[in-house]
Each structure stands twice: as structure tokens, then as C-alpha cells.
């Protein structure tokens, strides 16, 4: 992890991409890298990177979000600043892309710049989400997203969770499902992600890297 200049996260919407991307960015910044995160989500109007802007900026991370994110309009205009990150190679850039092929299309317009750069494309999977429950469904989703983004998926991320009701067993269940996907598409699992307390209790897949996450996005009724 953290060794590519551009890291792209795609996945089915609701796979937990944003949570993964935010945690990944925070940890990348902790390694001393000059980090930027781009919220390219034109699909999802609520609960997004823009929500945790303050925490990211406190971690020294440059945050670029769509023009109107978290306001009362839903015009998904992409910020022009994104271009600067392709020019200024001193940044490690994390792209949080919107869900499904539709969301992935937003990244497609940058695919030429990305393709000639040093990048990795992670596909985040939560096997407890409808439409990514089985190897067949996941494979279909990967193919659609690759099509939408115009960029091949390099690695899978096991992010099986049910938010507050997550357990290590979910990760184990997902591990088996992803093994099938891996062998059929020849795409390895890049890392396993989970909330600290859940992931540390997971005994399996010791050979695979892990992203221990902290909860950054809280629901309104949890906030004081």
C-alpha cells in the first residue's frame, strides 16, 4: 500500500469506498507523503468525503470535492482543480470514485492522464451488499466498472461489513467469495479493510495487507 502516485478506489455504491479512501489517505499522509484526496462521486448526494473535510485537512491532506458537495443542490460539477494534481507530481493522489459504472464514468475523462502515470486501481467489495453477493455478481460489476472508468482493475479490496454490525466472520465469508473472483479474473486481493476492533479479531488471510480503519463518517443522530 501507499506506493503508487495515484490510487483509485471504485466499487459498487455502498461498498464503503469513501470510508476506505479516507482512511487510506489519512494513513498515507501519516507516512509523510504529500497527499491529496479527490471526491469524484457524482452519484451519491449524502454521506461523502466532503463530510470529513475537516478531519482530512487537519491531517494535512488536500481535499478536492465537487463544486456543490453537501450543499442544497445536486449538480455534480467536477472541480477544475483536479487537473492540477496530474501536473504536480509531488502529490500522492487518492481518487474516491462514485458507485457503479455510472460513477466510474467520471474518472474516465482523466484516463489518458492516469494511464501514463504511476497508478493502481482498487476495486472495493462488500459482499454484504446486494448486487455484489456472489462471484458472478462481483465479476459483472467489475467488468461494468472497468468499462465505465476505462481503466482495468488491478486489485480487490475485501471490505465486507455491515457498519455497526460487522464481524470478523463477514471478512472470512468474503475471503472465500473473493478467492473465486481472484482466480477467475486473475486479480489479486490487495488488502483487507475493516474497523480496527473487527479487523484485529480476524484471524484469516494473514498473508494479505490490512487497512485498519477508524470511523470517520458519523450519522446525524450520533453527533452531539
Amino acid at each position: 500500500m501507499f506506493n503508487k502516485r495515484i490510487t483509485i478506489f471504485t466499487g459498487h455504491f455502498g461498498s464503503g469506498k469513501t470510508e476506505v479512501a479516507v482512511n487510506y489517505a489519512l494513513q498515507a499522509a501519516e507516512t509523510g507523503k504529500k497527499t491529496a484526496i479527490v471526491d469524484l462521486d457524482i452519484v451519491n448526494p449524502f454521506f461523502r468525503t466532503a463530510d470529513v473535510r475537516n478531519r482530512l485537512e487537519a491531517g494535512g491532506i488536500k481535499v478536492i470535492t465537487p463544486v456543490y458537495a453537501n450543499t442544497n443542490v445536486d449538480v455534480p460539477s467536477l472541480p477544475a482543480e483536479i487537473n492540477s494534481l496530474f501536473e504536480d507530481k509531488s502529490y500522492s493522489v487518492i481518487l474516491d470514485v462514485g458507485g457503479d459504472d455510472l460513477g466510474a464514468r467520471a474518472v474516465s475523462r482523466y484516463r489518458d492522464q492516469i494511464a501514463c502515470d504511476d497508478y493502481i486501481h482498487y476495486f472495493v467489495v462488500n459482499t454484504r451488499r446486494p448486487m455484489t453477493r456472489t462471484p458472478d455478481e462481483i465479476i459483472r460489476m467489475i467488468l461494468e466498472i472497468q468499462d465505465g472508468a476505462g481503466l482495468k482493475v488491478d486489485m480487490l479490496v475485501n471490505n465486507a461489513n455491515m457498519l455497526g454490525e460487522s464481524t470478523p466472520e463477514l471478512l472470512a465469508e468474503a475471503s472465500e467469495i473473493l478467492a473465486v473472483v481472484s482466480s477467475r479474473l486473475s486479480i489479486p486481493v490487495g488488502f483487507i479493510s475493516g474497523m480496527e476492533e473487527v479487523l484485529s479479531a480476524y484471524e484469516g488471510d494473514r498473508g494479505i495487507e490490512r487497512l485498519y480503519m477508524k470511523k470517520n463518517i458519523t450519522l446525524p443522530w450520533e453527533q452531539m
Partner: peptide
């Protein structure tokens, strides 16, 4: 079994 879903879905 339980799955994770968005309200609208």
C-alpha cells in the same frame, strides 16, 4: 441473513 443496504434500495 442480514445485508447492508441503502434506504432507497
Amino acid at each position: 441473513e442480514k445485508i447492508l443496504m441503502k434506504g432507497n434500495e
